[in-house]
Nucleic acid binder design. Structure first.
Lengths: 126, 126
DNA sequence: GTAAACCTACTAAGTTTTTAGTATAAAAGC
DNA sequence: GCTTTTATACTAAAAACTTAGTAGGTTTAC
């Protein structure tokens, strides 16, 4: 029974985001994707190795090169992050979080209803 | 026009959470509030000074002692964090985020409607 | 008044995270 | 085949973050 949630560090998260976007990628692809100032090739290489150690990514070897892919999916990670966040800032209540943001962001009632509709559809097609 | 969002570090956030909870606090109060293993008094003192430098907290001097208080409110910080998060994980779309979580967390349609009701009330009383 | 308790400033060491160099080996181009 | 390009492993330095000691000043208790 583990409660541990080990968030990614800033640099790790950036690489992971790239990996989620590319799905399968050589280090070079990640460097190419990232905006200026691009990190050093070896920096990315190091970080992706750390991500492998942490179980966030894996790779398959194609000749000498490694093609990396995510082992933890973006959905899964965002869910955990969100739960963490709601825990700390909204007493663990999803509803609290929602009502706060409905107030904060100028979301109209019409929009809310559209969102609700979307949610209902999501539930039906689950 | 600044876009910068400087998230708090882990230690900073912990102290800040304590400060939000206490609203006004001497360093001692914060140490007392935090669970075991309690940080060293000076550790808290250092971090709260950093929080002051960053503009997250302020203090008033009562005799020799400083009583600290939040300058950035919890709501404000959670809003920014959330926007950041939605930006990175839901293409900046609040609705996307909601529908994802409606699916992920077993929220019933009934609950959703209650939440919607809550949201409407929030908007009316704004 | 003096000792004990308490508070902050300053500082430095420890730890974690980030960055990138060097070495080396495979692959590609000619 | 030899040179150039492109990969990764290993390593270490730099930067950021965390922790806590020492010094020195106030306040409190006797």
């Amino acid at each position: 029974m583990k409660k541990e949630f080990k968030p990614l560090t800033k640099a790790e998260e950036e690489i992971m985001q790239a990996l989620w976007q590319l799905d399968k990628a050589f280090v070079k692809d990640i460097v190419d994707l990232l905006p200026e100032p691009k990190p050093h090739y070896n920096t990315v290489s190091t970080i992706i190795k750390i991500l492998e150690e942490k179980g966030f990514a894996g790779h398959e070897s194609l000749g000498k090169a490694n093609r990396y892919f995510p082992l933890v999916q973006k959905d899964e990670y965002s869910k955990k992050s969100m739960n963490q966040f709601v825990g700390k800032y909204f007493e663990g209540s999803f509803a609290n979080m929602l009502s706060f943001f409905a107030k904060e962001k100028d979301i109209s009632v019409k929009e809310l209803e559209e969102i609700l509709q979307l949610m209902k559809e999501q539930k039906n097609t689950k």
